[in-house]
Amino acid sequence: MNNNQCRVYYPFVGPFDPCPPIRVKTYVVPPNQFIPFQPMNLPQYPLPEALRRGTLWPALFSPYPCPPVGKGGGDY
């Protein structure tokens, strides 16, 4: 449930663009998009880890930023 949250698309790159192109753009589709109503008894993180991650359930955890290039990754 980790890496497929990150989607990429390839924007149009014109022949006369003034700046060097960014060829890959990314956006996030977090897991809540796929769970219409949370089922009972989902697996849980150990409590200290849940506190750190912000959620009790691995099924809802959404890492950020996206790993691929796009918006600069770990650069900013």
């Binding site: 924007p11 014109g14 663009d17 003034p18 700046c19 060097p20 192109p21 960014i22 918006k71 600069g72 650069d75 900013y76």
Partner: peptide
């Protein structure tokens, strides 16, 4: 759009 689409946040 042309001036901003390829700019990084920085």
């Amino acid at each position: 759009y042309k001036l901003t689409k390829d700019a990084t946040p920085k």
